[in-house]
Design a protein around this nucleic acid. Structure first.
Length: 587
RNA sequence: GCUGGAGUAGCUCAGUUGGCAGAGCACGUCCUUGGUAAGGACGGGGUCACGAGUUCAAUUCUCGUCUCCAGCUCCA
């Protein structure tokens, strides 16, 4: 049986139940979605949890009746008349938007009918396992200015067992929630009320994790021919007028009304682009562009790859903020590559490789590549957009990668490739993006001198690998359920001395581990061994070393591995050797 | 920004039909010196999100604000 058909049919049954309980309710649409189905209703009073239970009960009744799904076809005029009579305004709108041809409707039971393309299951009795999950607001047709409807989400499976597994998986998702795990593991917190929503505070362990990630990235970028730069967090508004952000991104920018008396020097763009006011940067590009422009560049210098762990601030709408995934201040692993046209394809392919390699090191599979094209609100000529889009597409094709095209979803200055990663629960996360840009080089009058001594315009690539470190750390926490691999764990080894008499020995072990750059903590509290072990497990520390009289006497350490318990005693050097191997292999 | 739900100790949550605010964990002190997931006793900790209003009295009722949660819209 086709699961989408089953779910779609289930949404019809739900709509029938809602109409039975509240006959005045108007129906909008009710499709199957990835994990279930929904139906949008126009009803005055909000649906409550109790209402959902009542609806489920009626649905059970309809399913027990085993009503057949019957298809009928009408011409458009008749269909409009029928749904007008039923007072189903939204259905009338839907039919009016359809081409002038036969309109199909489906009937179930004696009274319920719905505009529907189909197909459906034979009869309601084929629904074996379903559950209504939640209710939420949703705009009619998804357009903000339209009336808001009430959407009931539900899911449906062929068997109860599959439904139970799905519900169990939902619980699993909750357990992995980085918004709970992150503060619990003392990685980060957000002081919504005191400091502001969407602003992240890294506590010592989280800051250490981030430093480990940053160090890895710096090393890897230097290895791959990037230069590191550091640019200011506030810059004159004139720069943002020239870049186009002032016109195309203003509602997301923070302005600092106190500026300098003297307007900034105008670079590129019209003369009115003089500032005197400052902007907290929402992006890093203008800073990198200034560095590119700082001297005359030869074609022999290109490509120039400027990398910065750049913190940016964006004024996101309050309702979209979500843990570390959507914040107002975040740090991108951002680079801008200035290159010759003939270098473009090679650079894009190198970035794609870089993304794949990086994801693998952090333990993710990459999936889902999307190519996004020119949006309505954008700068640059059609010709440039076409060249940029073709360049990205060609690179994907040359690498033999599958991708979807997302029409109109590009940045305002250029088309982009998004690479999504897949976590342990098979959820996807938007992290890496590669954007091809002919527009900003033009606006800022970027140039290089070609082999004939003529001034030419370089092409600019914007790209991030992990995207925002905040979002990526959120993904890491959920992917690993907080149990980070050894090489990323803020505390790699916890020393547990059993009693005070072994403290001298324990201190010696600690010093030795630290001399190998192993991150080690010692639990000196006056607690039982059991308690300290429990604590280490809860804090998801990869290794514990238990140190008592026995270990001192034999000059060994007793190893306990998270999740697999007592590993027995070994000499310290053996343990260290083993650990270093694992760390080097990014395990 | 929109629709709905919510905000009580650091955390997880009780509770008050309007009348002195509660537990477990965590934290502190003391006892206990232990062998692989919670040893014991005692103790500190709260403008019940914030601001108005109603009332003899508001954590509780009303209104507003902020924030969170589930979505919509938007996005790294």
């Amino acid at each position: 049986m086709n699961l989408d058909v089953l779910r779609h049919s289930c949404s019809h049954v739900m709509a029938e139940a809602v109409k039975e309980l509240w006959p005045q309710t108007k129906l909008a649409i009710g499709p199957a979605i990835e994990d279930g189905f929904y139906y949008d209703f126009d009803k005055q009073a909000p649906f409550t949890d109790a209402d959902l239970l009542a609806i489920e009960k009626i649905m059970q009744k309809i399913i027990a009746r085993d009503d057949p799904f019957l298809r009928e076809e009408l011409d458009k005029i008749k269909a409009i008349g029928l749904f007008k009579k039923l007072n189903e305004d939204y259905k009338v709108q839907l039919i009016e938007a359809l081409p002038n041809q036969a309109i199909s409707i489906y009937k179930t039971g004696k009274v319920f009918l719905d505009l529907c393309r189909g197909p459906h299951i034979k009869s309601t009795g084929q629904i074996k396992a379903f559950k209504l999950l939640s209710v939420a607001g949703a705009y009619w047709h998804g357009i903000e200015t339209n009336p808001m409807l009430q959407r009931i989400y539900g899911t449906c499976f062929e068997t109860q067992k599959e439904l139970d597994e799905y519900l169990k998986n939902l619980e699993e998702v909750k357990l992995r929630d980085h918004r709970k795990l992150g503060p619990a593991l003392e990685f980060f917190d957000i002081y919504h009320e005191e400091a502001g929503a969407g602003l992240v505070f890294y506590h010592p362990k989280g800051a250490l994790l981030r430093t480990i990630i940053e160090d890895y990235e710096k090393k890897e970028h230097l290895k791959r021919g990037y230069d590191m730069v550091i640019t200011p967090h506030i810059m004159d508004v004139g720069l943002w007028k020239t870049s186009g952000h002032y016109d195309y991104y203003r509602e997301n920018m923070y302005f600092l009304n106190i500026g300098d008396d003297k307007p900034a020097k105008n670079i590129g763009g019209p003369a009115q682009n003089r500032g005197g006011e400052f902007v907290l940067r929402p992006m890093n590009c203008p800073g990198h562009i200034l560095i590119y422009k700082s001297k005359t560049r030869s074609y022999k210098d290109l490509p120039i790859r400027l990398f910065e762990l750049g913190t940016v601030y964006r004024r996101e709408k309050a309702g979209v903020l979500h843990g570390l995934l959507r914040v107002r201040g975040f740090t991108q692993d951002d680079a801008h590559i200035f290159c010759l046209p003939e270098q473009l394809s090679q650079e894009i392919k190198a970035i794609i490789d870089f993304v794949f390699d990086t994801m693998k090191v952090f333990g993710f599979d990459t999936v889902g590549i999307e190519l996004s094209t020119r949006p309505e609100k954008s700068i640059g000529s059609d010709e440039d957009w076409q060249r940029a889009t073709e360049a990205l597409e060609a690179a994907l094709k040359e690498k033999g990668l599958k991708y979807d095209v997302n029409v109109g979803d590009g940045a305002f200055y250029g088309p982009k490739i998004d690479i999504k990663l897949k976590d342990a629960l098979k959820r996807t996360w938007q992290c890496a993006t590669i954007q091809c840009d002919f527009a900003l080089p033009k606006r800022f009058n970027l140039a290089y001198i070609d082999d004939a001594g003529k001034e030419r315009q370089p092409i600019m690539l914007h790209r991030v690998l992990l995207g925002s470190l905040e979002r990526f750390i959120g993904a890491l926490i959920e992917h690993y359920k907080g149990e980070l691999p050894l090489w990323l764990s803020p505390t790699q080894v916890l020393l547990i001395p059993i009693k005070e008499t072994v403290l001298v020995y324990a201190q010696g072990v600690k010093t030795k581990l630290e001399s190998h750059n192993i991150r080690v903590d010692m639990d000196l509290r006056n607690e039982t061994l059991d308690k300290k072990i429990r604590n280490a497990e809860i804090n998801k520390i990869p290794y514990c070393l238990i140190l008592g009289d026995r270990e001192v006497k034999q000059q060994q350490v007793s190893v306990r591995k998270k999740g697999s318990g007592d590993q027995g005693a070994v000499v310290l050097e053996e343990f260290i050797g083993n650990l270093i191997n694992q760390i080097q292999e990014h395990k």
